[in-house]
Design a protein around this nucleic acid. Structure first.
Length: 843
RNA sequence: GCGGCGGUGGCGGAACGGUAGACGCGGGGCCCUCAAAAGGCCCUGUCCGCAAGGGCGUGUGGGUUCGAAUCCCACCCGCCGCACCA
């Protein structure tokens, strides 16, 4: 017998070539929506709407080479895509590149290579590696967000939003990174006020910026979470980010200046306890209020200091409260009291109205401030049933009943009083119930080169004018100097900058900011559906066929931003009549990180595992299989080179046994192709067939719940059994079991399984229906009955599958070691679980 | 502080309320070999015992149950997200 040796470096390219040449994984938009398999098996009732499936992994940011996290993500998605195909569905499984953005540009600045060039190189490297991994991508739909064919439609979407009033420009205090020389989105600044990318301390600047009105969608983004199958923690993060609070808007009036100041509060029940009023340093009325008072100078100095503070300093709740009185008062609308106005940095301009009513008796922050400034603290809620000294002290933030408020409300439970007070305010025209959100509008302007140009022309006569659709794309000019200098490098290109106004034809200038890259990735999943369309962003029929995405896969790091923005775009585009669905991703799976020696891989730690090196050593199948085998895919997994060897041994054994078995069967599988299950069997043959059906059942179930690690373990068990029963089973039984093992493992290790299946049957495993477990084969005629006494296992005996409870009890009672523990005792209860166990409770 | 997730052998991890530790790694022993590599077979939670068998075991303490890693209560520890959001 010839020596059979598993050689992934021969096997993998060979099958990759077949798939590339035959364009196996391409799907068409005009294929009839019917089952791909001629004869759907029993239980294969895939509904009409289920016949198309869209499996999508988050598109990679091409920088350098793919890392191990990419391997995990695409190994995961590929397994799902293959499984869906084998269930008879058409599967859209595309790939693209999120190719604009700061990292590419920074890298370019460092190395002197133009971002267009370095990005193209990275993309080429990603393509090469993805192909070497053998992932089943429809390459005909490949895209990169930096291509004019793509960003033409990014610009079109921007203009649609602009026309709908959802893209607007305003002066705003924005976060400015002095190192990257650009404005940052709130989300790109960490909690301590550092630039997320370079770590520099962020400053504040006033600039005229483009925003997208995501706040209009706060409520729908919040409520829409109910209808999608996402991990609970991701939904929670999104809810926290949206930050919905119910409360009331209450108007406080400054009589001296004749101005109303509405505030938002979640606690209108504590209104009678408001003893002062605080404005944020950024509040536009602060200078005006202080003007002419003895505090004018102090207020100005305080505001200046506060504006120059970093978020790190300002965000610290622990530090002593600071502030300055403005020398004015406002009227508390519920009791007419005049309460002093302060300016203090613990109040944020971005949230609510930038001003608050302060209730030191029932809010910790207000209490801190009142203590520091010796302001009155009034209790207006008392505990119903004081639990300890804490309840009798202020601030008291729990529920209770009203006191010191007003005869109409005193004594009322505070929740009830809250509603009653809001109703009263409403009647009096002094306030109303209100919902407030933490979410802010999305700042998309970037003073950077490597991004999608904002398709706007600024005309002195006509104002802000959108570029007409037929003039799109506004191409990114090929400038020499793309170093950021505080304004966009695009402004340096005269030919780009100076245009004639699309409306009046007069001299005008282009907008020179580019868009945040999150804009590019907020709609790419739509473009895949119709990636080569040069007449429109998509044909609605194509979206109807594929959208929404059935299964989206990616890292948790995108739990908030990317996923929120994509949802926002979907809702906005639906409102504009371009889409007929509200949520882009029906189901989401978030994969865990791959670590090395327990910590995150990084160049500085020197613990980076390169996918290319692993594949060079053991092949793509092993690498893919290992990363899915090592643990549940949603959890972090530690990379172990020894563990990889174990999986390599397993695949090696699968292939070797298949090759040997095929040879013993005559090596003419292709002459008589096909696979059928041996019909009559007994003894070990039956045992092996049973194990095979057990594995079919197990792997299918595990795939449906993303338990890839146990699915692979089940195939390992099956292979161990095949190997163990090698000498005592028929060749046909072995052939059937091995081919089934290859078939079940194909979604994880496609090359070796395609090869093994071909050797054994002469057929293409990816064209085969997913195996069906035979119910009858899942049950055997006897099983091991567990015999317990007082819940402890004392013996095990063979029982017939059809034995009744009495028979089982007798069997158990007769077991030798059970008798020992029953001896001299009285049985007070007998528990029988047919198919499992018998438990005698004795005294 | 708030919210979420988790804690099981030497390690990664399995276990619809029903045999804890599947599968893999690591370790030990053996076979094949002149030798090695590769491969194959067996053992491997822990303590007592020659063995049969028994005791103890899923972060801690309680509870529910014939039976708890699993359900409930309290607590400890770890990770992640948010955090002066009125």
């Amino acid at each position: 017998m010839a020596e059979h040796r598993y050689d992934p470096h021969e096997i993998e390219p060979r099958w990759q070539n077949v798939w590339a040449e035959e364009r196996t994984w391409e799907v068409r938009n005009d294929e009839p929506s019917e089952d791909r398999h001629e004869a759907p098996g029993p239980g294969r009732s895939v509904g009409a709407t289920d016949l198309n499936s869209y499996v999508l992994e988050m598109l990679p940011y091409p920088s350098g080479e793919p890392h191990i996290g990419h391997l995990k993500c695409y190994a995961l998605g590929d397994a799902i895509a293959h499984y869906h195909r084998r269930l008879g569905r058409h599967v859209l499984h595309p790939m693209g590149y999120d190719a604009f953005g700061l990292p590419a540009e920074n890298h370019a600045i460092k190395t002197g290579v133009h971002p267009r060039v370095s990005t193209a190189e990275s993309i080429a490297s990603f393509q090469r590696q993805f192909r070497s991994w053998g992932i089943s991508i429809d390459w005909s739909r490949e895209l990169a967000t930096c291509e004019p064919e793509y960003y033409r439609w990014t610009q079109w979407i921007f203009l649609e939003l602009f026309r709908a009033g959802l893209a607007y420009r305003k002066d705003a205090a924005v976060k400015w990174c002095p190192k990257d020389q650009t404005v940052l989105a709130n989300e790109q600044v960490d909690a301590d006020g550092h630039c997320e990318r370079c770590g520099a301390v962020v400053e504040v600047r006033q600039l005229n910026q483009w925003f997208l009105r995501i706040t209009d969608y706060a409520e729908r983004l919040h409520d829409g979470l109910h209808e999608i199958e996402w991990p609970e923690h991701v939904k929670t993060m999104q809810r926290n980010w949206i930050g919905r609070s119910e409360g009331a808007e209450v108007t406080f009036r400054c009589e001296e200046l004749d101005v109303d100041y509405p505030v938002f509060t979640t606690r209108p029940d504590t209104l009678f306890g408001a003893t002062f009023f605080v404005m944020a340093p950024e509040h536009p009325d602060v200078p005006r209020l202080a003007e002419g008072t003895e505090h004018e100078q102090a207020a100005r100095e305080y505001v200046n200091r506060a504006l120059n503070e970093t978020n790190e300093e300002r965000g610290n709740a622990e530090r002593q409260k600071t502030g300055v009185p403005l020398g004015r008062t406002v009227t508390n609308p519920v009791n007419g009291e005049q309460i002093p106005i302060y300016v203090a940095d613990y109040v944020l301009m971005e949230y609510g109205t930038g001003a608050i009513m302060a209730v030191p008796g029932h809010d910790e922050r207000d209490h801190d401030f009142a203590t520091a400034f010796d302001l009155p603290i009034r209790r207006v809620i008392e505990p119903l049933d004081p639990q300890g000294d804490d309840d009798l002290e202020l601030p008291y933030t729990s529920d209770g009943r009203l006191t010191n408020s007003h005869p109409d409300f005193d004594g009322m439970p505070n929740r009830e009083a809250l509603a009653a007070i809001v109703a009263w305010l409403d009647r009096e025209g002094k306030g109303h119930a209100s919902v407030n959100y933490r979410l802010r509008d999305w700042l998309i302007s970037r003073q950077r080169y490597w991004g999608c140009p904002i398709p706007i022309v600024n005309c002195e006569r006509c104002g802000t004018v959108g570029v007409p659709i037929e003039q799109l794309p506004v191409e990114l000019p090929d400038v020499e100097d793309y170093m950021p200098k505080g304004r966009s490098p695009l402004a340096a290109s005269e030919s780009f900058l100076n245009v004639s106004c699309p409306e009046c034809g007069g001299a005008a200038q282009r907008e020179t900011d580019t868009m945040d890259t999150f804009v590019d990735s907020s709609w790419y999943f739509l473009r895949y559906c119709d990636a080569r369309n040069d007449q429109a962003a998509w044909d609605p029929a194509a979206l109807k066929r594929w959208m929404p995405v059935d299964q989206y896969i990616g890292g948790v790091e995108h739990a908030i931003l990317h996923l929120m923005y994509a949802r926002f775009f979907t809702k906005a585009l639906a409102d504009l009549g371009h889409l007929d669905f509200q949520e882009p991703f029906n189901a989401l799976f978030t994969q865990g990180m791959v670590t090395k020696d327990g910590s995150k891989m990084s160049k500085s730690r020197g613990n980076v595992v390169s996918p290319a090196a692993i594949i060079e050593r053991v092949g793509a199948d092993t690498a893919r299989c290992y990363i899915l085998f090592v643990g549940p895919p949603d959890q972090d997994a530690d990379w172990s080179d020894d563990g990889v060897e174990g999986v390599h041994r397993f695949l090696s054994r699968l292939w070797r046994l298949s090759a040997e078995t095929a040879e013993r069967a005559g090596g003419d599988a292709s002459a008589a192709p096909g696979l059928s299950e041996p019909s009559t069997a007994g003894g070990d043959d039956l045992a092996l067939l049973r194990k095979t059906h057990w594995a079919i059942d197990k792997v299918g179930g595990d795939l449906r719940r993303f338990a890839f690690n146990t699915a692979i373990a089940a195939v390992m068990e099956l292979l161990n059994e095949i190997s163990r029963l090698r000498e005592s089973t028929d060749l046909e039984t072995q052939r059937f079991s091995l081919a089934t093992a290859a078939s079940l493992l194909f979604p994880f290790a496609p090359h070796v399984c395609a090869d093994a299946y071909d050797l054994l049957t002469g057929e293409r495993v990816w064209e085969q229906e997913w195996p069906q477990a035979d119910e009858a084969m899942l049950e055997s005629e006897s099983y091991e009955l567990v015999c317990q006494v007082n819940g402890k296992v004392r013996d095990r005996v063979q029982a017939n599958a059809d034995a009744g409870p009495d028979e089982l009890k007798d069997l158990c009672r007769a077991a030798p070691n059970v008798q020992v523990h029953l001896d001299g005792k009285q049985v007070v209860k007998e528990v029988v679980v047919p198919g499992k166990l018998v438990n005698f409770v004795v005294r």
